[in-house]
């Protein structure tokens, strides 16, 4: 059990404390207390509440509701396995209309602590996208179940945000309206939403493009909007289905940096599907390599590169010997899988 004080410097390197709706509590209080518009009695009451909160927070965290707000930004640091994403022994069989069936996934199990970044890699047809669609709640698995924070996934929900490859933006809305879509649908207060959208526009580097229609943006910029739109909803898990797949190599590299930065700043759990070995290695704190027919987990890795990517330059990391070694290892693994399939069909 951990104890925190409000305003205390957290030991986390890549997360700051957040309330459930994503605002930084300490910053928020600072703004209220320093504003000349805040009446004096409100400042006094606020200070009293904070003082009592300081006292309350010495009580074990889960016992007070205030601490829940703080724990939300903090969990995952400890690898608390009650909060996180559990894919529990999933199998997926598609029955074909003409008889016969396709075994898309077989006994896939994985456990993702909150705040982890997992990349999923595999040759085409290994069920990566099916897996993501099941986690998102767009498909129901034939066997097994998915749990997020101990709740079974039964359909799409705002807790599991999704970033698609491309063309999933709403082209009839401008950038700002696209990003605020989630909060607007959920009926969040307008002022709060607007502030959040401005903040996100700056984070993804689209500060001057808020009023542009999305179809006027380049592919890379559109994916920035897609990331911001997902983050605006403050989901527990972000599912990314080849989010950078349609971008050119240079833009792709820049966007990888942005994904790392967002991961660091928000502390979100991320599942990233990709068919680029380099991207999977560079971004994944954990990496799952899947094998096809039936789709299953082939190997799991824990990688240092994402953590290093927060400080070192991406080129440096991608050129380092251990990165290259891992890349070649995984490439030849996938190569073997492909050859097995080809050999299987040839005989």
């Amino acid at each position: 059990m951990r104890f925190f004080r409000l305003g205390e410097e957290r030991p986390s390197v890549r997360r700051f404390p957040t309330t459930p709706d994503g605002a930084n509590t300490d910053k928020l209080w600072g703004q209220i207390a320093n504003s000349p518009e805040t009446p004096m009695h409100n400042k006094v009451v606020g200070a009293l509440i904070l003082a009592s909160a300081d006292v309350l927070l010495f009580i074990p965290a889960p016992m007070t509701c205030l601490s829940v707000a703080i724990q939300k930004g903090e969990n995952g640091m400890d690898g608390a396995d009650t909060n996180g994403l559990l894919v529990d022994d999933i199998s997926m069989v598609f029955k074909l209309p003409g008889g016969g069936s396709v075994h898309a996934l077989k006994n896939v199990t994985m456990n993702l602590a909150s705040g982890e970044l997992l990349s999923v890699l595999g040759p085409s047809g290994c069920g990566k996208t099916t897996l993501l669609n099941i986690i998102a709640g767009f498909l129901a698995p034939t066997e097994g179940a998915v749990f997020l924070n101990n709740q079974q996934v039964k359909g799409p929900a705002a807790a599991r945000g999704m970033v698609f490859q491309q063309g999933a933006l709403f082209e009839w809305l401008n950038v700002r309206k696209n990003i605020s879509f989630g909060p607007r649908m959920m009926g969040k207060p307008r002022k709060e939403t607007n502030e959040k959208v401005e903040h996100l526009l700056n984070i993804v580097g689209l500060g001057d493009f808020g009023d542009k229609p999305v179809y006027q943006l380049s592919g890379g910029m559109q994916q920035r909007v897609a990331l911001a739109r997902c983050l605006a909803n403050d989901p527990d898990v972000i599912l990314m289905d080849e989010p950078l797949g349609a971008l050119d190599a240079l833009t792709r590299e820049k966007m990888q940096g942005l994904v790392l930065k967002l991961w660091k700043e928000t502390g979100k759990t991320i599942v990233l599907i990709t068919h680029s070995v380099e991207e999977a290695l560079f971004l994944g704190e954990r990496l799952i390599v899947m094998a096809p027919r039936p789709g299953r987990i082939h190997r799991e890795y824990r990688l240092p590169f994402a953590e290093r990517g927060l400080t070192d330059s991406p080129r440096e990391i991608k050129a380092s010997p251990d990165f290259i070694e891992k890349r070649e290892e995984i490439l030849s693994m996938i190569w073997e899988m492909e050859e097995e399939i080809m050999g299987g069909t040839a005989t």
Binding site: A136, G137, F138, G155, P156, A157, A158, R160, G161, M162, F164, Q165, G167, A168, F170, F181, G182, M185, M186, R229, C230, N233, P235, L239
Partner: peptide
Amino acid sequence: SKVHAAYSLGASKFQVLKNV
């Protein structure tokens, strides 16, 4: 993918109809 995106952003059926 647009419909999926709207649902996973928390939209209801009616909101998907109206907004997507």
